[in-house]
């Protein structure tokens, strides 16, 4: 399939998805959707498939090796995640034992419960990509991944060819590219503009907002789903807000705690599809999954949330 054909199909899919989701409106007016009392879901622009807006990351929290007690707790964390309507789980071969631990702790009926599996390819050798992907699939104990992302743009051109072949053959649904900590945004922007990717993963939170300038508008324009990583800056943001009461606007958006407000802030950006907080605690998982269940803040309230957090 030529790039033109792909782009044409993509345009039709994206247009359909956006219209169906009511997202053809200007970026400031875009909203997600939810069933009554259920979690917020947002569409993947390239397909229209809806994804729970609060996902789960595995950086550090699932890299626990062979510790049996910790593995038992991670099983409970995943149960709480799926019980609250969670779906998207993101990992990487870079995260030590995280993929192996996921394979041991995912519920047997995870696929039926809405698992959206996302991992990464992370090797500087393009020829080694398929073997690494196979190894990851074996560790997760899944027949295939929903989303494969090129980790931190490493050897991205070689891996992109592999992933596009896999997507064309139907062994993969979505392709993505990741970055974090605000690195290599310019190169990422170029890939987003030129290449037929479905997802981009980048750092976005209440204090790291550089992506708002160019990448998020571009993602919206190009119909690329956005995964926001480091939503809590590795726990530093909730720590900063610890013990501080949530201002009155918390009630307006259905949040009881600062971590919930921080997640709601992220996924209320119209271009953001989901956030992937990581936790090793069941109570924190339940708290995270209770975010974004009320009305989403408008642009003015988003600025107020950011200002109030900055004043902490």
């Amino acid at each position: 399939m030529s790039r033109f054909d792909h782009n044409r199909r993509r345009f039709l899919r994206v247009s359909g998805g956006l219209i169906a989701a009511g997202l053809a409106a200007p970026i400031t007016g875009a909203r997600g959707d939810r069933r009554v009392g259920g979690p917020l879901t947002k569409p993947i622009p390239s397909s229209g498939q809806r994804l729970p807006a609060i996902g789960m990351g595995t950086w550090i929290t699932f890299n626990i090796g062979e510790d049996p007690d910790a593995i038992a707790v991670r099983r409970q964390v995943l149960d709480a995640f799926f019980a609250a309507g969670g779906g998207m789980i993101d990992s990487s071969p870079m995260y030590g034992s995280a993929e192996a631990v996921l394979g041991r702790t995912l519920p047997a009926d995870a696929l039926q419960r809405g698992l959206f599996s996302a991992t990464k390819v992370w090797t500087g050798d393009g020829d080694a990509g398929p073997a690494e992907i196979d190894a990851s699939r074996a560790l997760w104990r899944l027949p295939r991944f929903d989303l494969l992302q090129i980790h931190n743009l490493l050897a991205w051109e070689a891996h992109l060819d592999t992933l596009m072949d896999m997507r064309a053959q139907g062994s993969l649904r979505y392709i993505g590219v990741t970055t974090s900590h605000g690195r290599r945004h310019r190169e990422l922007e170029r890939i987003m503009a030129d290449r037929p990717i479905d997802f981009v993963q980048l750092t976005y939170n209440v204090v790291d907002r550089e992506a708002e300038d160019r990448l998020l508008p571009l993602a919206h324009e190009r119909g690329i789903a956005v995964i926001a990583n480091r939503p809590f800056r590795r726990g530093a943001l909730p720590q900063r807000a610890a013990g501080r009461p949530l201002p009155g606007w918390g009630r307006e958006i259905g949040c009881d705690t600062w971590p919930q407000a921080l997640l709601t802030f992220i996924v209320s950006h119209p271009a953001v599809t989901c956030a992937i907080p990581a936790t090793s605690r069941v109570d924190h998982m339940r708290e995270n999954m209770a975010a974004a269940r009320g009305p989403l803040p408008d642009a003015a309230l988003r600025e107020r949330i950011a200002a109030d957090f900055a004043a902490l």
Binding site: I60, T61, N63, I64, G65, A70, G96, H181, R184
Partner: peptide, 22 residues
């Protein structure tokens, strides 16, 4: 890979509890 853009925390993918447990 642009190793110099990574900080020490980016290269340690486990927690202190996990390290002590190991």
């Amino acid at each position: 890979m642009d190793w110099f853009s990574y900080g020490p925390a980016d290269l340690v993918p486990f927690s202190s509890e996990t390290w002590l447990g190991l």
